[in-house]
Nucleic acid binder design. Structure first.
Lengths: 224, 224
DNA sequence: TCAATAGTGTCTGTTAGACATTATGGA
DNA sequence: TCCATAATGTCTAACAGACACTATTGA
């Protein structure tokens, strides 16, 4: 994309749920005759741009709209290979609401995060770092809602938490903690999905907390 | 230090306790006639160097030895001013054991973190980011021990935790949680400091955890 | 002796996780 | 009807924080 040996690149890991899996957005890069090559959307920041602005610009063409969240992960300045050969790459995570990924740019596609095609080693590290950062922030701030449409069932919400944490949660405990956190409110609608009893729809509506807690906080482990 | 408008700088926030305060290492910069100016130790990374290596090189001359921990905080690429005018600065935190800061380089000095002299706005943001990162990692990994000599009293350890967390902890709860975490073991020595009963000295000696926890974990708030 | 700090034992309220039960729809 | 999922109530073990107490030194 940019000229030879830039000092910097900005790389964005876009995440969205697809079914029961978390997926990452990759773009196919040139080389029409050689075998397929994929990479994270990335570019060198321009001279008049902050790195946050560069990251926003990098996701714009591939994603239709702006993501629900875009945050820096870290700088990666080791000797691992990067497509642009940049000395240092700055990783970002973008969270995209489920279903909002309808209009993908031409050569972009979503891949399950645990089944990525071969990518440059440094970009592989950026993806891992992005997952770490998201998990770390999950109990500090309510970022799980960024991956959901505006109304959702509690089972959907729990599924997102399980996707991000990589482990099952206890249903009753999850709902108790959620209730105590005052982050959601019920709507009048119910949704029937397949078998079983229909689920009530909720929306994200954080209330002022009187004293203490910041996020949702689960120690909760195994699930039935 | 380096030529005009480098693309990158690496800035290191070195932390060590002094008495009951956390202090940051700053260096005085040139300008012998003008009024004092201080800044975080920083430099542009060299072309053959990773950013981690650059950070290690930056702290070496000012600190006597290598710090007990050196980790990246984040990249700071906004439009705030930086001494070198770098487009992007990468912040690092170094933790230095108490007392190990005997041989400081020429124009370096420790300042209480809440009473820093005026520094460039971006470096101010790097210091804040470093404090955030340290607090965030405190309950994930036992970094408090990096700020202590090899043997210490439990009151000293608790004081470090209070310094880093910025709030008082409950003594009995602190010791209970510490005992449960299997991170320290007692030595045969006791130390008498001023009045009161002498305190037993402990050393950092993490044991294998059978099941769950990673760090120390305190919800614990107020102290007697 | 008093003051100050170290170190411990007990009580209580909160809560995470397990378990059980009811509710409600589709096949 | 049976089955699958939603939603909720109760029990229990673990634990954080409060409180009280003993232990041991210096002044």
């Amino acid at each position: 994309m940019s000229a030879r040996r830039p000092a910097l690149s900005v790389d964005v890991v876009s995440l969205t749920p697809h079914g029961r899996r978390l997926t990452v957005l990759l773009v196919r890069v040139g080389d029409s005759r050689s075998k397929e090559r994929w990479e994270l959307p990335n570019d060198a920041p321009r001279s008049d741009e902050t790195i946050d602005e560069a990251a926003a610009r990098v996701v714009r063409p591939t994603l239709g709209a702006q993501p629900a969240m875009l945050e820096q992960v870290a700088a990666f300045g080791d000797r691992r290979r990067h497509p642009s050969d940049a000395a240092v790459s700055i990783g970002y995570v973008a969270l995209v609401a489920s279903g909002a990924s309808a209009s993908l740019g031409g050569d972009a596609a979503w891949f399950p995060v645990d089944e990525l095609p071969p990518i440059a080693p440094r970009q592989r590290a950026i993806v891992d770092g992005a997952m770490h950062a998201v998990r770390a922030r999950l109990d500090q701030s309510p970022i799980a809602f960024r991956l959901l449409p505006s109304t959702f069932t509690l089972s959907q919400l729990q599924e997102i938490y399980e996707l991000l944490l990589g482990r099952r949660l206890h249903k009753a405990s999850f709902r108790r903690a959620l209730h105590a956190s005052w982050l959601v409110e019920p709507t009048d609608e119910w949704r029937s999905e397949g078998r079983g009893r229909p689920a009530q729809l909720f929306r994200y509506a954080p209330r002022k907390r009187r004293g203490s807690r910041r996020g949702v906080r689960f120690e909760g482990v195994s699930g039935t």
